[in-house]
Amino acid sequence: MSKAKYAALPYLVWMVVFTIIPMLLILVFAFTTPDGGFTIKNISDVGKYTDVIMKSIWLAAIATAVCLLLGYPLAYILSRQSARSQQIGLMLIMLPMWMSFLLRTFAWMTLLEKTGVINRVLGMIGLGPFELINTSGAVVLGMVYNYLPFMILPLHSIMVKIDHSVIEAAQDLGAGSMKVFSKVVLPLSMPGISSGITMVFVPAVSTFIISKMLGGGSNLMIGDLIDMQFLGNAYNPHLGSAISLVLMVIVLLCMSVMNQFDDSEEMEGMLI
């Protein structure tokens, strides 16, 4: 066995133990009964939670769209700065991620509750109190706050490679700001957009801490259902595995669509 194969062995062991075996266990549990018999009832029972699944996809899509709208201009502006300014900007973007995910979500609970900071400030000017927490909007806000860096970082890594002389050449040829954006900047940044969408949508659609803490019991998501089946009073790992399998299919479909989009962009670039 070559040295390269020996070097790859720990990674192969890690993948088998922590990825392949757990996925096989989920597959087995999803199609078996508690006594070990084969069944598809677990999969069919997932249909009872179609509304929760659709709501999870919808909220994750909204959060992803908001992250794109906020992250795209920020990533572009940051990519046009000096190297020193980019380092400081990226550090500030990553700074909240140095704290616990749970702690950051607790902070938003303090801000959004009826006696929280936001309602107190609004009360000083005669507004409120508003029902900010335990709403779908609070869930989307929590997802945007926690996952926005996952949109900005891949966008920045692509935009920083866009040669400014290309933009200047388009401007010299008479292209206006919108034309330069639609014909130059946007096409060249599409790999970052597709990567950012995938990196935000996948964790957003499977989140459960954010929806549990900021959304209350009326805003369940797929992650909450899985958590309830494995750790809640309604302990049913077989149904939980079936829901997990459906979630994996959704994630794989999302990644497949974005990969196809990447391939089409690459082909278009080759033709040009």
Rank of each mutant, 00 (worst) to 15 (best):
S177Q: 14
T115R: 15
K183I: 02
N146D: 03
S194T: 15
I152T: 03
I118T: 07
Y145L: 08
S189L: 09
S157Q: 15
G192Y: 00
A138N: 02
M190N: 03
K183M: 10
H164N: 14
I193S: 05
I118W: 01
I193C: 10
G137D: 08
L155M: 14
I167L: 15
L112Y: 02
V185R: 13
D172M: 13
I193N: 04
N146L: 14
V200P: 02
G176L: 13
G116L: 07
V140H: 02
P129A: 14
G142I: 13
Q171K: 15
P187D: 09
G116I: 10
P191W: 00
V184Q: 06
N119S: 09
M159D: 00
P149D: 00
L155N: 10
I152L: 06
V140K: 04
K183S: 07
L186F: 12
N134V: 01
G174V: 13
G174H: 13
G116E: 01
I193T: 14
L112S: 08
L141H: 00
P149K: 14
G196A: 06
F181S: 02
L112V: 12
T110V: 14
V144H: 03
N119Q: 08
L155G: 11
L186Y: 09
K183P: 00
P154I: 02
N134S: 12
M124G: 04
I162V: 15
L127D: 05
H164D: 12
L186D: 04
K114M: 06
V139R: 01
G128N: 07
R120Y: 11
L122Q: 08
G123Y: 00
